[in-house]
Nucleic acid binder design. Structure first.
Lengths: 348, 348
DNA sequence: CTGTTAGCGCATTCAA
DNA sequence: TTGAATGCGCTAACAG
């Protein structure tokens, strides 16, 4: 075996499965099997093969494997944007859940364009991925059609909806915002407003939840909503709030579409010497780590983004092993309203 | 052509290059060429081919392409962590610069482990990537050896260093911190401290820059440094600062390793009613968007992370076309100290 | 500018 | 449990 290895190494080329087979004195297909289902190979052969692989430094060629098998070890992930920090945690959960699986994630971004999403779905699906992870439930009809025919697990993350394509992992953004708005009202705020940027479908549902709570409280008349299609940021929170308070000074609380905006509102309110929570209540969405650390700490709707990423990958891994949840399953990770000082005041 | 297309569609299978060739009445290799170098195909043939591709909805099989050509259209990107938000902007720059190139990014994370990095480099390189992007200059000797032999462009991002493997795009973290520290001293602060979390190599160099400035000002004696290997966060900034001020109440300024920590210091200082910038000066690093929006706005060292990502991809694209910078080039994107209210006080 | 031949490295199918 | 034959879809190298 030593001789064989030396001879092969001297070729000074890429090490292939055939080289390993030669060094281990078995046929290539046996090496292939040893790699994919080690229990179908005799322990002796397996041992020789493993040794040869280690000594030669063999690494399988995924392209050849994909071409021959008609499958790839790639999980396609299609999200709107990498710089939206709600997705960062989701991605971290995915990467962590990937470890030791031999699977890799291929990330693509739509820039919030449904057409771009449809195109990416089409491209990914023709590449026979091991699975596909999508953000949300608002794929175009054509895309849904493609996905329905796909023969790989499809996981929709971020939110749960009425009719998942396959499996969904998320939460109800409507309900989260509804509960947050109701909390503001219960705390005695009588003129809460909604602040939103980058109004994607999930943001729209948060807004709907806010409106529902306001209607329930008989406050529909005084409801103020300020939104912009531009990306969300802390500065945008400052600007939107400045705009809001200039036109509607009677506003006494703000439900923000996300935590960046909420932090911007906090800063802008401090600049204007509006006391929090007495003159102004602030509530965010997602509960980024900094909400707890802020001065004062900011009330926010906690969501388990890391868990979503992990579960999405876990579901695909389970499916590939014949287990996992059946199509049609929605996994609602829920949310938790973290009540903090920014809405802590008693308002009679 | 219409007939041919109908016949092919009826196969109801994956559309291959051969199908396109049949529909367009050319040989497969001509279609292949039309895809890769359209100018080497006659306009008439190209037109027929493009039409057939559109009508059949043909999408190339990257695995087959990779296997046949020995190259992939994948750019490997190896970074420490996806949840560290300095990398989010870099990634956004990369994805933007990718558009229309047919290249894709394959992201992998090391979890700040040099061994993991070495392993990933090994795996990526055996897959004949179009390029490789690495964070920083602290690859293991074995990894540098592998990379030196690689026959694809290698771009080191985040920082510039003495001896790039191929091309480097970044800035001097030492100099950025040096300038920031000198700024604090010039403003009259007499006992600046350094706060750091997740002390990766770049953080170490920032610390070195801080120390150098302190030495230069004859303040080496009073230099206080608080660091932790744990991940950086706003809350961590609160905690580290609380720790610092408890043991060293004479501290009058803090240079933070990054902006998350700086924001935490701001919040914690506000909780303790330390007036900023009079009692305490705060300086961050990276100049995240929120630094400008904070109340008071926080001085920070602005870095062009988006540009780094863009340039890294652009360099690889250029190289693939035979252009681009030669090996050994370092592109220093520099930094800009953004002086804001958190260090704005006059201190006599 | 276009086509022919051959083969990339591996997995599937069948046979032993 | 192992192996032989075959082909996945595409491109390199050459020839025309």
């Amino acid at each position: 075996m030593i001789c064989a290895i030396i001879k092969i190494m001297q070729k000074n080329q890429k090490i292939t499965l055939a080289d390993v087979a030669e060094a281990a004195n078995v046929s290539p297909i046996t090496v292939s099997r040893a790699l994919r289902s080690p229990d179908k190979v005799s322990p002796k052969a397996r041992d020789r093969i493993e040794r040869a692989i280690a000594q030669l430094g063999y690494v399988p060629n995924p392209a050849a494997r994909a071409l021959a098998s008609g499958r790839t070890d790639v999980i396609g992930v299609i999200i709107p944007s990498v710089s939206n920090n709600v997705f960062a945690e989701v991605m971290r959960g995915m990467y962590d859940a990937l470890s030791g699986s031999g699977l890799t994630v291929q990330l693509a971004t739509t820039g919030y364009s449904p057409l771009a999403e449809e195109h990416l779905i089409r491209v990914f699906l023709t590449q026979q991925p091991s699975g596909l992870i999508l953000a949300g439930h608002d794929q175009s009809p054509a895309a849904r059609d493609l996905l329905a025919r796909a023969n790989c697990p499809i996981v929709q993350v971020m939110e749960v909806g009425p009719k998942p394509i396959d499996v969904a992992v998320g939460l109800s953004h409507h309900d989260g915002a509804f509960l947050a708005a109701r909390h503001l009202i219960e705390r005695g705020y009588r003129a809460p407003a909604f602040l939103g940027a980058q109004m994607d479908p999930r943001s729209q549902r948060r807004l709907a939840g806010f409106r529902a709570a306001m209607r329930e409280a008989g406050l529909a008349e005084v409801t103020q909503v300020v939104t912009t299609p531009e990306p969300s940021s802390v500065s945008m929170g400052c600007r939107l709030f400045a705009d809001l308070i200039a036109h509607h000074p009677q506003i006494d609380a703000v439900l923000c579409n996300n935590d960046d905006l909420a932090l911007g509102v906090l800063f802008e309110a401090q600049r204007r010497n509006l006391s929090i929570p007495d003159r102004l209540g602030i509530c965010g969405f997602n509960d980024l780590e900094m909400m707890e650390a802020a001065q004062p700490p900011i009330t926010s709707v906690q969501t388990d983004r890391y868990g979503m990423g992990q579960l999405a990958i876990a579901q695909i891994r389970d499916r590939l092993e014949g287990r996992g949840h059946p199509a049609g399953t929605s996994i609602d990770l829920g949310f938790a309203l973290q009540i903090r000082d920014s809405t802590g005041g008693w308002r009679g």
